[in-house]
């Protein structure tokens, strides 16, 4: 049970955590934008459906959603949506993407709706098209407004990945529980804390850098 063995084991688990983290962001950041457009749609039935969906997802625990995604298709319908070696990971990813996309969609919506009407009107009277308005005028203002809430969510996501263990995804905590905690070895827990601190620290630096990059203007 050398330090190196533990490091290697935990790195494997942490690799799974990181992959879950990255893939969740890759899919949920754009999906969130689609959902936010849906919830802002002028076609009322669509906006109601989307908002109800967002309400359900944000109003129920992620842990429950993990259970539902992974177990319910098999329990109720006898179908194995997530079979095979990566089935659990895929199921976790699906639950995470849906959950985070809904959170991101609300952040986007707040950011977009928070842009003063005058910005759109100024763009209009200057003859800009809707697309030009979005990309030249609105986008960077939204980015600046949502940077702080997005960075909060992203850092929360780092730690939320550990929830995937409830459907037995071999992320770092699950690995630790099965390999070390099961033998009464506690110190890797603190080691894990270091992994997370370093990761979150890096993210904090990254978002700080972004904030600095955007500090040349104020919205």
């Amino acid at each position: 049970m050398g330090f190196l063995d533990v490091t290697q084991k935990l790195f494997e688990g942490f690799g799974v955590s990181c992959l879950l983290f990255i893939l969740t962001l890759v899919f949920s950041l754009p999906l969130g934008l689609v959902i936010s457009f849906g919830s802002m749609s002028k076609f009322k039935p669509l906006s109601w459906i989307v908002r109800t969906f967002v309400w359900i997802i944000r109003g129920t625990p992620l842990m429950l959603q993990l259970f539902v995604v992974f177990y319910v298709p098999g329990l109720l319908f006898n179908i194995q949506l997530f079979s095979g070696d990566n089935g659990r990971f895929t199921a976790a990813l699906v639950a995470f993407v849906i959950n985070y996309a809904c959170y991101f969609s609300e952040i986007y919506r707040g950011g977009i709706e928070g842009i003063p009407k005058g910005q759109y009107e100024a763009a209009e009277v200057l003859g800009m098209t809707a697309v030009e308005t979005f990309f030249t005028v609105i986008l960077m203002q939204v980015v600046k407004r949502i940077l702080a809430p997005i960075s909060n969510e992203v850092i929360t996501l780092v730690k939320d990945t550990s929830l995937a263990r409830v459907i037995a995804v071999a992320e770092i905590f699950f690995v630790n529980e099965m390999d070390y905690l099961a033998y009464g070895i506690v110190w890797p827990l603190f080691y894990i804390a270091v992994f997370f601190l370093v990761f979150v620290g890096a993210l904090t630096l990254f978002f700080g850098w972004c904030e600095k990059k955007l500090s040349y203007y104020r919205v």
């Binding site: 005058g118 910005q119 100024a122 209009e124 203007y217």
Partner: peptide
């Protein structure tokens, strides 16, 4: 619209430029 120009009460300059 481009035949007309409008200056707003609240300026509405684009803050990022």
């Amino acid at each position: 619209r481009l035949k007309m120009g409008l200056v707003f009460q609240s300026f509405n300059l684009f803050p990022q430029y």
